[in-house]
């Protein structure tokens, strides 16, 4: 079952097409990455999913149903452009935002108390948002995003401007909610973040979908049979090089690319036969960044 399905979604603005015929599914309970450089159309997509704007064409389904009025209360959205009322107190503000998501005053207060306790910031309740540092404001904003227990959380560049400690804190919360069954869409232009966090991704460039699927499978399909081997001593010069090319050669390590029709075992066997002590042997998979550049390069040609 998919928590979100996009079917041929199109969004046009007066002078350009921000989203051009995009379709993908976000499986329920997964952390899904929406990748693409700045201006790729990620925010336009998110705004349609969160009912801020409407799609010109195509269909958006939440949990199998076409978008309707009550869906916004089931979604938690952390926009890239963070914003809170500077002059309002943290408590008042969180209560207000939670109640706009249809929580009763009582429910909202209880849930907020739990979150503030969890983040050890209960003493912020009476503080004005303007008095908090940027990182602290982000925590408040994160609580506002998730306080109503949404089925789907959409985080647009959630870690920008956060220090490593707070990044990990938020990351842990995302994992925990995901374990409890919340689906997460994670939108970013920083591909390396996605590799660690997401299982599934969609890669978008200039409004078009250029790649989607499981991260491991995508990486596998883009692998170039490169391996890194580290060892003691020096690389033997008498090995036959019919099955591989040496791409990079250091004192105690080499990066090789296995030629088509061969496999890396031939090389390993040769090394073992020569009594070379192998310390490590790794397949080098392409990073999403490299895949992205490769795909974008193709689409430009």
């Amino acid at each position: 079952m998919n928590i979100l399905s996009l079917r041929n979604v199109v969004k046009r603005y007066s002078n350009h097409t921000a989203v051009n015929d995009v379709s993908f599914d976000v499986p329920k309970g997964k952390i899904f990455g929406m990748l693409g450089p700045n201006g790729a159309g990620k925010t336009s997509l998110i705004r349609m999913i969160t009912s801020i704007t409407k799609a010109d064409q195509g269909q958006i389904l939440i949990d199998g149903e076409p978008l309707s009025d009550y869906h916004p209360t089931q979604i938690g959205y952390l926009p890239e452009e963070r914003g809170l009322y500077k002059k309002m107190k943290v408590g008042e503000q969180l209560l207000y935002l939670a109640r706009l998501k249809n929580l009763s005053a009582r429910e909202a207060k209880d849930k907020l108390d739990a979150w503030l306790t969890k983040f050890e910031i209960t003493d912020w309740w009476e503080k004005k948002v303007g008095e908090l540092s940027k990182g602290m404001q982000q925590k408040v904003q994160f609580i506002a995003t998730v306080v109503h227990d949404p089925k789907l959380i959409i985080l647009d560049e959630p870690f920008s401007g956060l220090d490593p400690i707070n990044t990990n804190l938020i990351k842990d919360e995302i994992y925990e909610m995901n374990r409890k069954g919340t689906s997460v869409i994670f939108s970013t232009h920083r591909m390396e973040q996605v590799e660690q966090i997401c299982e599934e991704i969609a890669l978008i460039n200039r409004g078009k979908m250029i790649l989607k699927g499981n991260v491991a499978e995508i990486k596998d399909s883009f692998k170039e049979n490169k391996f890194e081997i580290t060892f003691d001593g020096s690389f033997p010069s008498d090995l036959s090089s019919d099955s591989y090319d040496v791409i990079h050669d250091d004192a105690h390590s080499v990066i090789i690319q296995i030629k088509d029709g061969h496999d890396s075992n031939e090389l390993l066997r040769g090394l073992i036969d020569r009594n070379i002590h192998i310390r490590s042997y790794n397949e080098i998979l392409p990073t999403l960044n490299e895949i992205f550049i490769k795909k974008v390069g193709e689409s430009h040609e």
Binding site: I52, Y77, P79, G83, L97, L100
Partner: peptide, 15 residues
Amino acid sequence: EEKINRIVEVLISSV
């Protein structure tokens, strides 16, 4: 002010 604050994006994802 709401527009400059960018809080409007949070708000209109609820209302």
